[in-house]
């Protein structure tokens, strides 16, 4: 299965730059070209390029697909992941590992964890495009569709995350951007009515100093209890909502 990792794109993103000279290519050639375009647009292959390359390559991909619309299917659907199980928990496993491998400071891990949580509060409202050749549906690509107002913040978080995971390198410039703009991001998402704090499984009813917990547990190389972390972030966001006008 060659389904590639999600790439974030702004909306509206459909442009109609043609590949007219290739139009009468045999289908095998188109599929072969599709593989190349798909790989080029994958976020994993864009980590050494400037950020604006992501948008450019995704636009290239869409215009290619529109040119050969008899060969490809584009299915738009609501995002399917279960946020806590499929997304958030896995990210915490990675954060734990990055801290214990001394690639990431606990202080930065707390920040990144919080931003992933904010991202996840928006994510369930959104859609994804599944693009696949009709005859080779296994060669599909999954693309997250993000409203343009939220694109800059979300795409940077994706970019920072994959760089951290694949290159083992924290991009401090991007982290700085996320620090400066996360409140703006939340407010914009609330205005668009696509922000729902993801509740933990249950509310334990006690507060704790999350940062201290992270420092202590990670220094002792004990795994962080992610359910408590979700609860802590949840309470923090609900506090923000209750004071938000």
């Amino acid at each position: 299965m060659t389904t590639t990792t999600a790439v974030t794109i702004p909306w509206p993103e459909h442009i109609t730059v043609g590949y007219t000279s290739d139009y009468f290519k045999p289908e095998e050639d188109v599929i072969s070209k599709w593989r190349g375009i798909m790989n080029k647009a994958s976020l994993l292959n864009l980590l050494d390029y400037p950020l604006n390359e992501i948008e450019k390559r995704v636009n290239e991909l869409y215009s290619f697909v529109h040119t050969y619309e008899d060969i490809f299917i584009v299915e738009r659907r609501p995002v399917s992941d279960n946020m806590l199980k499929d997304h958030f928990e896995k990210h915490y496993d990675h954060l734990n590992k990055l801290v214990s491998d001394k690639i990431l400071l606990p202080r930065d891990a707390v920040k990144i964890g919080r931003y992933i949580y904010l991202y996840d509060c928006v994510y369930p409202h959104l859609s994804e495009d599944i693009i696949k050749p009709r005859k080779n549906p296994e060669e599909s690509m999954r693309i997250l569709v993000i409203p343009s107002k939220l694109y800059n913040w979300m795409v940077r978080l994706d970019y920072l995350w994959f760089k951290l995971l694949i290159k083992k390198k924290l991009d401090r410039d991007i982290l700085g951007y996320l620090d400066e703009n996360y409140e703006r991001f939340m407010k914009d998402a609330i205005k668009l009515k696509i922000f729902l704090p993801i509740p933990p499984k249950k509310l334990h009813g006690r507060r704790f100093d999350l940062e201290e917990m992270f420092w202590r547990t990670w220094f002792r190389k004990v795994e962080v209890n992610w359910e408590y972390i979700v609860e802590n972030f949840y309470r923090e966001i609900v506090s923000f909502l209750l004071t938000y006008e």
């Binding site: 609501p78 409202h125 859609s127 569709v145 409203p147 009515k193 696509i194 922000f195």
Partner: peptide, 24 residues
């Protein structure tokens, strides 16, 4: 239900790639 191919329910985008809006 939307993902269940045997079910009649089919969701449509509200706008711009957004399927749901929540107002807390």
């Amino acid at each position: 239900l939307h993902y269940d191919e045997c079910h009649w329910l089919y969701l449509k985008e509200l706008s711009g790639g957004v399927y749901f809006q929540t107002d807390w």
